[in-house]
């Protein structure tokens, strides 16, 4: 029996397809005493790590007030992720966007990805 196959997480509907460069909003469940609330963390995904297994995780970077960069690492299949929305698709040319850490303001912008043009003769989808 292969180790990698055993704990293959089912693709969950609450996690859409996303990748580095995308701007996402992670709705994360937070416990405060015995009260639970949802905290959103919005920023650019600067990397996805460890493939598709249960260890998969991703890092979201956001520049908080005062120009302080905040990065949070979320386990992709954490039960504490209530939902995840992709708010913007980014067009980037590498998988790990560590270079963003050294950039500020206008330089740290990411171009928005335009949908690839469909080949001729094929009906355009929704």
């Amino acid at each position: 029996m292969e180790a990698a196959q055993i704990l293959k997480p089912e693709s969950s509907p609450k996690i859409p397809d996303f990748g580095a460069g995308d701007t996402v909003r992670v709705n994360f469940r937070i416990r405060e005493g015995d009260r639970e609330r949802i905290q959103a963390f919005q920023g650019v995904v600067i990397r996805r790590q460890n493939g598709s297994g249960p260890s998969a995780n991703f890092t979201v970077r956001r520049v908080a007030g005062g120009g302080v960069g905040v990065e949070r690492i979320f386990p992709l299949y954490s039960p504490l992720i209530d939902s995840l929305e992709v708010t913007r698709r980014g067009a980037v040319r590498r998988a790990k966007l560590y270079y963003l850490r050294g950039l500020q303001g206008r330089a740290a912008r990411i171009k928005e990805k335009t949908l690839p043009r469909r080949p001729r003769g094929q009906a355009a989808g929704s």
Partner: peptide, 18 residues
């Protein structure tokens, strides 16, 4: 078989041997 990880309900990760 090998090792992996499992999530508990409260979000904690448990390293497991299968």
């Amino acid at each position: 078989v090998g090792m992996s990880r499992v999530f508990r309900e409260d979000g904690r990760v448990v390293p497991v041997t299968m």
